[in-house]
Write a protein that binds this DNA or RNA. Structure first.
Lengths: 167, 167
DNA sequence: GTTCTTGCAAACGCTTTGCACCAGT
DNA sequence: ACTGGTGCAAAGCGTTTGCAAGAAC
């Protein structure tokens, strides 16, 4: 999918980097652009692979360094993995995640689909809240079909007890 | 803290293992017991270290294998880490987690403190929900004190955008 | 007796780091 | 000119795996 990017988009990326106090370099622009367009929550390796063709000199270490720098300054989020490598999310608007326990694919869930009550500022014992992460464990359509047809390969952990309760 | 364990507890552990289709062995009983008593969400390494004194022949690989077997059969939960090693939770009743982004400590949050509306069975695109994980990002009392006094060491990622929205 | 588990060591995957060179400011 | 980023290779950490000996069934 060859996305032609409007000029204003690139301009805003430059400004984003500058505002974060980061120098404007090829790798950073490329990675930032990819993160903003890729809704698949890529791993560092996937970012690397997808940029290597256009950017042959790019190194994996630079991808890691850059993603770490971005996460530290709020240009992207780390998505805590239930297993396997860390994944990165360039979508900064509030949203939840849905992880397919069959194939490992990670989906975005808009807050319109499931609204959370505002979290308390304090949880007791002096725990002050500054963020919330909600992840659904799901089975995606294709994995449901596979489970119904082929049968279980027994890879995944036992279905977790939901964290919720009908209160 | 030398917990003397009532006989019925050990008996129920044996039954738990048997019901899960696992053989009753020393390492498994010890690890299961530790998980049920430790509310600190230990890593595999911590489990290993805490059992090694009483169980000198225990190996780290066995701890990993056992924890994996437990998680697969629902005897414990894996807690997805925002960074660092995987952590394990023997508390199976529904509850949330609160991760201190300063020191990495992980706290349990009872559902009485923050109730979640029941999750939809379907999220759209054929995603069928079978679990939910909610994690608060918090600053614990001691890390708040440290931040107020000492100042930021700049270790952690930028405070994440909360996933919620006042809906 | 058969099957599963253990413990050791080695391999593995993911991520970070040290360092010399180069580019952005 | 100075500071910080890049790319490479190597090290690091956390976890899994192959295998022989032993324990549970």
């Amino acid at each position: 999918m060859e996305t032609v990017e409007p000029r204003h988009a690139r301009r805003s990326q430059v400004e984003t980097l500058r505002a974060a106090g980061l120098r404007i370099t090829g790798p950073r622009l490329a990675i930032l652009r990819l993160l903003q367009h890729d809704t698949n929550h890529p791993t560092a390796e996937q970012v690397f692979r997808r940029l290597r063709s256009r950017y042959p000199s790019l190194s994996l270490a630079t991808v890691y360094n850059t993603l770490t720098a971005f996460a530290r300054r709020g240009l992207c989020r780390r998505v805590p993995p239930f297993e396997g490598p860390q994944r990165f999310d360039g979508m900064l608007d509030p949203h939840h995640h849905a992880l397919c326990t069959g194939c490992g694919r990670l989906f975005d869930v808009p807050v319109e689909v499931y609204g959370l009550p505002p979290p308390p500022a304090e949880l007791g014992d002096g725990l002050s809240v500054h963020g919330v992460q909600l992840t659904f464990q799901v089975l995606c359509a294709s994995c449901q079909a596979e489970a119904a047809g082929g049968g279980d390969r027994g890879k995944a952990d036992h279905t977790v007890q939901p964290t919720h309760e009908e209160v």
